[in-house]
Design a protein around this nucleic acid. Structure first.
Lengths: 361, 361
DNA sequence: ATAATCAGCTGAACCGGTTTAGTAGATATC
DNA sequence: GATATCTACTAAACCGGTTCAGCTGATTAT
């Protein structure tokens, strides 16, 4: 087998304990001896066994992430890969690893958390996609598994939260559309079961109210592409159909925009569209999508850091608030269409940051 | 602390060893005693510590996956999430977990493998995105870390491979285009450093040769959207520019198609386009993308299974060959344009299934 | 009837670290 | 000069499982 602490101890002519002290920078060995031990360790190429370390120190040196999504949807969501990359950048500095669990079948999610907790495979977990009255926070409490949540749950939660407010982005999108002269601005929401589905809807409602507009063009969907089509269909069928739709994510915006086009509407001529997430492919759509650019990688970094802080006791007790995402204006939004009857002055695209190259004339 | 094997032993009135035998279904205890022990274990809610188990049995009960990609690209690639979900479905049955590592910085990849190997955090790894003369197989050999590779490396590899041949899909795409009357069929390849970048190119060349056509319209890209634009630009600038392009993945096809449209070409009127992967968003493009539908989830299942088989010694020694992906014909491919006699300007947008509302005129 | 075998169990060693209790020798204290 | 204190270390217990050697009492073979 591989070289163990005993081999190193023997080579350096000391006891196992001394090697342990030397390695971990603890007092109890003289500098001279420490150097000798470290030298021997290096020569033998000793890497302390994480398993043994974990057994005696009762730590797993791993964090867990359970992703509960339809794998079909998963593949389309740009959030997780970047988020995970962010987690990794933090973990790389603290020799922790990430244990990832994907729960696709119903009920698999709870089993996944139990699996991580039971054998002591992880020291804590990061909770994403927090739901309304999320049952997982009770579960984790029962399992005595430390955690951080992405955004603060609406139910009472003992866990620190790392939040990225989506209000500002949605507000900016609505304001942008209002500035373009739109008054019938719809919203295709994500599943309202998710708190980010809710908060985006509420942000839309608040922004509409602030502009003195009625927030009555709402259709709930489920963050999926087909869901986006269905919700868009519903909104466009209405007599007072919207001239602009704020979607709760890019995938729904993409499929909604595409659907509108197949119905003979031009984007943004007849319908302006905004997304959320800034998935890379959205800038290659036709037209490129105006969307809200989040930073999932930063979120991952911060979440992992918050969890590690909690584990080693340096948690501040405060929630972490990350910088709010910003609106990215592209060509899928344009001036509101002029009512066919009276050719009254259409609102000019006032001081747009970037020219909408595909604006209908 | 939690309940341990000793607690169970005491409760059942037996020794620790007996509990271990009973739990693992090994001989050495009578059925009656076994039942009594399992009963006691259940009542106490005992979950054997993975850490302790791992220490004595010298196993980590975890598999590793190192993903080395630009996080930007990662988020757009539908492959990994589904692939990981596939791995999970296998692991869920074998109480193993998945340790995921994302290496973004250069050099981080090797460090990631070493990190997984050194502490004994994983029992084996799955190698994706195999490269030409991949240095990782030597590294893993050195680290004595069992592995399986996705597709067989071109360098000599001691590890079993789980392969999904991409020849058939590309061949089908080319045949499809040939059947539509195309003769100038280009290929935008992925980075040729990757063996799947190469094999797709070779498949294209072979299919072209089979059809008696010259395979001279090749442009190498890097699987990214901007890369796809650059390669498409290059191909379309040529005097003998292609009437159809076979892209090595969906992302490049998406950006390439979008670029062609901004240049005034209609798809598929002037240019037919095929992708590879069947990312979900591709069916919501305008026009929906003809692509090759792979099954990353199945691949993940199979790869994890092959690795587990290798670990417990039941590996057959044979590579696993998965079912080849199939061509999915959508609206981005159509009949080859008839060469306009006198004019060199692009033909009129002929009967498009959906109007390209934003074509610059 | 005695030896050989075997099922069923126990006690202890072991995996590779951490940590505690204890000790020898040097230094400080009075 | 005797005692207390401190430094630098060692030996051993410990984490929670697995596994091996050995012991017992019953069954089978001769």
């Amino acid at each position: 087998m591989a070289v163990t602490i005993s081999d190193v101890a023997q080579a350096a002519g000391v006891s196992k304990g001394a090697v342990s002290y030397a390695l971990n920078g603890q007092p109890g060995v003289s500098d001279a001896t420490r150097d000798r031990i470290l030298q021997a360790a290096k020569e033998l190429g000793w890497k302390p066994s994480l398993r043994a370390k974990g057994l005696s120190s009762a730590k797993a040196y791993a964090l867990g992430l359970v992703v509960a999504r339809d794998p079909k949807l998963l593949g389309t969501d740009p959030f997780f890969p970047a988020f995970i990359a962010g987690i990794e950048t933090t973990l790389a500095e603290h020799d922790y690893t990430l244990v990832l669990s994907v729960a696709t079948a119903p009920g698999a999610e709870e089993r996944a958390y139990r699996k991580l907790a039971d054998g002591g495979r992880v020291d804590g977990v990061i909770l994403t996609d927090v739901r309304h009255n999320d049952s997982r926070i009770g579960l984790l409490r029962e399992l005595k598994l430390p955690a951080v949540t992405l955004n603060r749950p609406d139910a009472d939660s003992p866990f620190p939260a790392v939040s990225m407010d989506d209000t500002d982005g949605i507000t900016a999108a609505v304001d942008h559309l209002v500035g373009l002269g739109h008054v019938r601005i719809g919203h295709v929401g994500g599943a309202q079961e998710y708190i980010h589905g809710r908060s985006r809807r509420e942000a839309w409602e608040a922004a509409m109210a602030k502009a003195g507009l009625a927030a009555d063009l709402f259709a709930e969907a489920d963050f999926t592409a087909p869901g986006g089509v269905a919700a868009t269909t519903e909104l466009l069928r209405r007599a007072d159909r919207p001239t602009a739709i704020v979607y709760a994510n890019d995938l729904m915006a993409t499929s909604g925009q595409s659907y509108a086009q197949t119905q003979g509407l031009t984007v943004p001529g007849d319908l302006s569209v905004t997304g959320y997430d800034n998935a890379e492919f959205t800038q290659y759509l036709n037209p490129p999508l105006t969307t809200i650019s989040t930073d999932p990688m930063l979120w991952g970094r911060a979440a992992a850091q918050a969890l590690l802080n909690q584990l080693n006791g340096t948690h501040s007790g405060e929630d972490t608030q990350l910088q709010a995402p910003v609106l990215l204006v592209r060509a899928s939004t344009g001036p509101a269409p002029v009512p066919a009857a009276g050719r009254s002055s259409p609102p000019r695209p006032s001081g747009q940051p970037r020219a909408s190259s595909t604006a209908t004339s």
